[in-house]
Amino acid sequence: MSTVWATILGLTLATAAVKAVVPVLLGGRDLPERFTGVIALMAPALLTALVVTSVLADGDRWHAGADTVGVAAAGVVAWRGASVVTTLAVAVVVTALLRLAGLP
């Protein structure tokens, strides 16, 4: 089997396993209230990590660029109550304009 197909097969199985393993083991029962409180805390932690690793890092180094400014601008309009669609539009337009102006 070629390297490409071995990668596809391996990643298919690994992805399914990672997504399914916790629901298989943990699902279908009520967890202690203390635990659901912590679950509610996971969302802000994961979301913040997804944002900062996207806009303040490139691979294994810290990096700021046009997308950093675009997403920050989107954050400002979102904080002021803009809809999700408006927020995304601001992010894309600001990022694209800054790239047009030569920012990486």
């Binding site: 969302a43 997308d67 675009g70 954050g75 927020t87 894309v92």
Partner: peptide, 21 residues
């Protein structure tokens, strides 16, 4: 990348995150 589309996902996550804060 020149279309700025890499900003879509982080901006979305930020929009979902802000009310939590």
């Amino acid at each position: 990348d020149r279309f700025g589309l890499d900003a879509v996902y982080p901006a979305f996550f930020l929009a979902v995150l802000l009310p939590e804060l």
